[in-house]
Amino acid sequence: MLIKLEQVSKIYKLGEIEVPALIDTNLQIEKSEYVAIMGPSGSGKSTLMNIIGCLDVVTEGRYILNDRDVSSMSDDELARIRNREIGFVFQTFNLLPRANALHNVELPLIYNGTPRAQRRELALQALDNVGLAERAFHKPNELSGGQRQRVAIARALINNPSLILADEPTGNLDSKTGEEIMEIFERLNNAGNTIIVVTHEEHIAKHSKRIIRLLDGRIISDA
């Protein structure tokens, strides 16, 4: 089992008010699955993704990743997992605006101490895999939305993570570009990567083999 959530709740406190974003959630995901998470706005999809991606911590319950309890991990261990085990693709790309595509892609390698020459080579390779080798020295503001998202995907894949998380990766893209991005994920899944995609769109979710639907912080269907 790759991912195991046991009675997980996430409650945001805004002063006196408590906002439950995720309530008593149980979820298991195997290696090499391709899962789509759907649900209306505010239903807790991003909250769930951030917990799975070790960007956020649970308020209650346990999250077990690769047989290890995430809530007992130190900050440095979490950083290592985010670096090595997980590739996160965001709706808003989250590229460093001042760095060119190549530098953005090699950033995760800097934090795990890959030597410079090897870093270059790997980053160029990753850009080539998403069809952007000739854009390596462009800054994000010199790229189209679809190109930026492909840079972000190249960055997420650079360390060969076993788990790829994408929170509305096509949300800011037109449908044709969105389809291209989804093809990349399909390719990755066929190669054995575990993929979890959050989306609003049914036709995007069709790419997956399993759809989890959320409503008001609870899983209402899983098929």
């Binding site: 991606g53 590229l95 460093l96 934090y111 960055r155 360390n159």
Partner: peptide
């Protein structure tokens, strides 16, 4: 802040 968030999300430690 956002840059720091991005760096942390892709594996920067506190010490980094």
């Amino acid at each position: 802040t956002r840059e720091i968030g991005i760096r942390k999300a892709i594996g920067a430690t506190r010490r980094n």
